[in-house]
């Protein structure tokens, strides 16, 4: 199994008001695969994910040290334009948060702020990305309705399409199915499998079966430390560490 890394962390340490949430994380995330970050809740999975697109620094009292390299460039260096870094990465959060505007504008928002003004071009993008997220057929007749009228499963796919529309290379997903019913979750998972041929996908999940179903590569985080990482099969079938085994067997959760 030979892969190139897309995103890499070096000695990444994050602390909230003095308490260390992530300790010295060194990891490489493979390109165009699905990487799952697993671990018990409160152990720093989401923190790690949010450190990848510099959303962490929007919170109060956060200190970050170490480096996060995307395509070899340190995203925490001062010379980087933060909006360009974030544009490279689409985020899907636990609950869908559509922007307070119509379905059409939700998708068009990203392209518009990045300079796309032409109606025809936007129309094409909206259709393309809604189709890619598997939502086009359901909403094509009501693009001007407020996004808040969609079901929660549809909203999550809308958020996926909205993220894709800024043409990211990496998709960050923070427990993207935790607020959804089984049917909608399945749809999202299917989308992920389709998307991984073009995107690097990083997904935080506390559902082990979901990680097993989706992931090619797995990171196990426990109490702020990266315990181990490796190809999915290896982590699930022959973990090296005792804690990992206990977590996978359900002794700790």
């Amino acid at each position: 199994m030979k892969e190139t890394s897309h995103l890499r962390t070096e000695n990444l340490t994050v602390s909230y008001g003095g308490a260390e949430a992530l300790k010295n994380i060194n990891v490489e995330i493979p390109e165009k695969q699905i990487t799952a970050i697993i671990g018990p809740s409160g152990c720093g999975k989401s923190t790690l994910l949010k450190s990848f697109n510099r959303l962490l620094e929007e919170n109060d009292g956060v200190k970050i040290s170490g480096r996060v390299l995307v395509d070899g460039a340190d995203i925490y260096s001062d010379s980087e334009d933060i909006t360009c870094i974030r544009k490279k990465m689409g985020l899907l959060s636990q609950r869908p948060y559509p922007l307070p505007m119509s379905i059409y504008d939700n998708i068009a928002f990203g392209p518009r702020i990045h300079g796309m003004k032409k109606k025809a071009g936007l129309d094409r993008l909206v259709e393309k990305y809604l189709s890619l997220a598997g939502l086009w057929d359901e909403v094509k007749d009501r693009l001007n309705e407020p996004a808040s009228r969609l079901s929660i499963g549809q909203q999550q796919r809308l958020c996926l399409a909205r993220g894709l529309a800024v043409e990211p290379e990496i998709i960050l997903a923070d427990e993207p199915t935790s607020a959804l019913d089984p049917k909608s979750s399945q749809k999202i998972e299917e989308e992920f499998k389709k998307l991984k041929s073009d995107y690097t996908i990083i997904i935080v999940t506390h559902i082990l079966r979901q990680a097993r179903r989706l992931a090619d590569y797995v990171l196990f985080i426990y109490l702020g430390e990266l315990i181990e990482h490796g190809p999915s099969r290896q982590i699930f079938e022959s973990p090296r560490e005792q804690v990992t085994r206990e977590y996978i067997q359900g002794v700790i959760s």
Partner: peptide, 8 residues
Amino acid sequence: DSSYSLGA
């Protein structure tokens, strides 16, 4: 977070 992630 969503808006920032879109590059806003």
